[in-house]
Each structure stands twice: as structure tokens, then as C-alpha cells.
């Protein structure tokens, strides 16, 4: 990486990169800024960039008028619930495939991946009808189940690639030193597995938080997470830009922050370990 370059060239590169970076980020920045404007200022022509009267009334209004806290909690419960349930199912599976690989392990992994390639519309109708018949439409538990299944292949794969990097010899060494099975699990394996599990958790919370096919099709009012709540702004009445911006800022802020921490894991998780 340490290539010598002239100061001038670095200055030019820096300027171009910052300009492009800011341009790509601009829609998000604009949304955040608009969320602090009044509705009148939000559509004023020409628009003001920073010189407007900053207000928090949109946040207050979004919170009081709509049932924003409910939808936010739905997002938290659905994304965290489906991820934790997925981990519970996937950890034993990934563990056994990484440490006790059988002849079929690779086939099973590939087959799991293939379920992820099933386009959701292929199963939309049966899932919708089953949900209707079992009273699961517009319930959090229904969405938790669907999102768990959707993301299970990614969870298994990510865990598998992390677990595979834990050297088996270290277990033998521990055994030689007289560690019991319990000691092995608690003092040797767990500390080494925790970072991988944490990364997997992070990425899957992000994916589940932003999932916008099943959440839109299977929820109405009660269990709608933020993706579906924001979609209700697509047919608004009257002035709504500032309120849309406030609701959007609140919806993306937590995941934006989580996402910035998970850059590395993102590459690995989304390419199923094909690019590291």
C-alpha cells in the first residue's frame, strides 16, 4: 500500500474523492436537513441549504400523530428476533459442518445457498394463503418466522466461514493439557467463536431491518415495521416532505450507524466468503 506519491497528486485525488463521496451521500444528507425544516421551507424555491430556521416539530409530530414508536419497536423485534432465532438454529449446523465435515457437507452448504436464490414471488401466494388461514397476517411472530427462514442460509454460511478458521489443533492442545470437554467449549472455543457470531448477528440485523418484500406484503397496521410504515407516505395528502424526512431519518439512523461498523463483515457475508 505504501506507494510514494507527490503531495500535489494526493491533494487532487483527495478533492475528487471527497466530491464524489459527498455527492453519493447527498440524498441522505438532504433528507436529514429537510427533517429539521418546516413544511413550507421544505418545498421553498430556491431551497435553503443550511440557512433556515431549525425546528424539531417534525420529529414531535411524527411521534405523536402516527404510531411511530410502535413501528419502530416492530422493526426492532422482527429484525432482532429473526436474527437470534436464526443463530440458535444455525450455530449447531455451522459448527458441525466446520468441525466434523462429512462427505456431504459441501453439497448441503451449496443446497442451502440455492434456497436463497428462490425468488420470493415464487412462494408469495402459498405463504400469503397459509398466513391468512393460520391468522398470521399482520403479526410479528409471522414475520419473525419468514425472515428467519429467508436469512438462515446466509447465517449458516457466514458462521461456517468463521468457524472454519478456528484451528482444530488448538483443541487437541487443550485436550493434551487435560482440559475437559466443558473446559474446551467454555475457555477455548467460545472466545474464538464470539467475534464471528457477533459479525453474523450485525449483518443479519441490517438485512432484516431493511427487508422490504415480505414486510410489505404480510403486514398492514399492527405489525408493520418501518419499511412498511414509510411506504404509507407514497400516497400522502398535503405537505409532507419534512415529516417524511423526519420519519426516514429515524428509520435509517440506527442501521446506518450499525452498518458503518460492519463494512468488513458485509463483504464476506454477502459474497458467501467468495471475496474476503
Amino acid at each position: 500500500m505504501a506507494r510514494r506519491v507527490s503531495g500535489r497528486r494526493q491533494l487532487v485525488v483527495t478533492l475528487i474523492a471527497w466530491a464524489i463521496g459527498l455527492a453519493i451521500f447527498f440524498p441522505i444528507l438532504w433528507t436529514i436537513l429537510t427533517s429539521f425544516k418546516t413544511e413550507a421551507e421544505a418545498i421553498a424555491s430556491p431551497p435553503s441549504f443550511l440557512a433556515f430556521e431549525w425546528t424539531l416539530e417534525n420529529y414531535a409530530e411524527v411521534n405523536s400523530r402516527s404510531n411511530y414508536p410502535l413501528h419502530f419497536m416492530n422493526s426492532v423485534i422482527i429484525s432482532l428476533g429473526s436474527t437470534l432465532l436464526g443463530l440458535l438454529i444455525a450455530i449447531p449446523a455451522a459448527w458441525s459442518m466446520a468441525f466434523v465435515p462429512a462427505k456431504r457437507t459441501k453439497d448441503i452448504l451449496m443446497w442451502m445457498l440455492s434456497t436463497k436464490m428462490l425468488p420470493p414471488v415464487g412462494v408469495l401466494i402459498p405463504i400469503y394463503l397459509m398466513f391468512r388461514d393460520f391468522g398470521l397476517l399482520d403479526t410479528r411472530i409471522g414475520l419473525v418466522v419468514v425472515l428467519t427462514l429467508i436469512n438462515l442460509p446466509i447465517i449458516v454460511w457466514m458462521l461456517f466461514t468463521y468457524f472454519k478458521e478456528i484451528p482444530g489443533e488448538i483443541l487437541e492442545a487443550a485436550r493434551m493439557d487435560g482440559a475437559s470437554l466443558w473446559d474446551e467449549v467454555v475457555y477455548v472455543l467460545t472466545p474464538m467463536a464470539v467475534p464471528g457470531i457477533a459479525s453474523t448477528l450485525l449483518l443479519n440485523v441490517i438485512l432484516a431491518w431493511n427487508e422490504a418484500f415480505w414486510t410489505l406484503n404480510l403486514t398492514a397496521a399492527k405489525a408493520a415495521p418501518l419499511t412498511a410504515f414509510i411506504a404509507s407516505y407514497s400516497s400522502p395528502e398535503g405537505l409532507f416532505y419534512a415529516k417524511l424526512s423526519a420519519a426516514s431519518t429515524l428509520a435509517i439512523a440506527p442501521i446506518l450507524i450499525l452498518g458503518w461498523f460492519s463494512q468488513k463483515q458485509l463483504v464476506r457475508g454477502l459474497t458467501f466468503g467468495a471475496v474476503k
Partner: peptide
């Protein structure tokens, strides 16, 4: 390339990936 503030530029560039589809579509629209 070597530059000043590389980490921050990277964060700015990857940010749209974390925006939920309904938000980005409505904001653009």
C-alpha cells in the same frame, strides 16, 4: 489511492446501501 480522510470518504460512499428501499425510493421520488 492514498488520500486524506480515506475512512470518511469510504463511509460516505457505502452509506446508501444501509438505507431501506422504501425510504430511498420515496426520498428520490
Amino acid at each position: 489511492q492514498p488520500m486524506w480522510g480515506q475512512g470518511i470518504v469510504r463511509i460516505l460512499v457505502i452509506a446508501p446501501f444501509f438505507v431501506m428501499p422504501t425510504v430511498s425510493a420515496l426520498v428520490w421520488k
